[in-house]
Design a protein around this nucleic acid. Sequence first.
DNA 1: TCTATATTTCTATTATTCTCGAAATATGAA
DNA 2: TTCATATTTCGAGAATAATAGAAATATAGA
Lengths: 108, 108
Amino acid sequence: MKEQTAVIALSALAQEARLRVFRALIGAAPDGLTPGALSAMLDVTPSTLSFHLKELMHAGLVSLERDGRNLIYRPEIEQMNALLAYLTDHCCQGRGCAPARTRRRVTC
Amino acid sequence: MKEQTAVIALSALAQEARLRVFRALIGAAPDGLTPGALSAMLDVTPSTLSFHLKELMHAGLVSLERDGRNLIYRPEIEQMNALLAYLTDHCCQGRGCAPARTRRRVTC
DNA sequence: TCTATATTTCTATTATTCTCGAAATATGAA
DNA sequence: TTCATATTTCGAGAATAATAGAAATATAGA
């Protein structure tokens, strides 16, 4: 992962409403959630929610599928895993500390 | 980890200069680095660097020790691990996806 | 086609964050 | 105690991000 990509992904998560949205999507994976459901459960106005979902999309952290009248957002687990790896890579210059010896990955 | 703590930690990392500082400290763990060394290697003015280090301290992502005339900053690995866990917990409502079956942790 | 529902885009306002020079503080050494 | 080095704090300007109402768009069904 490039530095700029990581900054964009971290910025997307570094906001209360967006972090709630992302975690709600993680919890609802792999089914996903509609903006309407998210708006109701997180008490965010539709236009504000839409703004935040766009940020998460731009960061590659969520994906979107249309199902008839409904839109379904889901978390992009691989992007999340790439971000986690970026944050912990090269720990202790590779020597000694047994970084990433056990790795946190989400597989769904 | 509380939501607010996670937002603060993510905000601390969601900025190019601070992400570079944090990763430099991860790479230099467990020895740590002085502000002078960081300022030189990352080409950030001392006052700007100090502002960013304060943000990272506030987020609990780095710690500080004085050694005579030098200050030594180090990454707070446990806070980082807590953040990684917060981001991936409750994936798929615990069922099915084998989340965190293998966990990314940095141990130094 | 017309209507209702779901969601996004636009626009303006408000709020927050970043940057860096200058001044202040802390330490060790002469 | 005076000086030099290292770093932080202060302050103000510039840049970026968040919010939500109103209008636009897209879909499905009557």
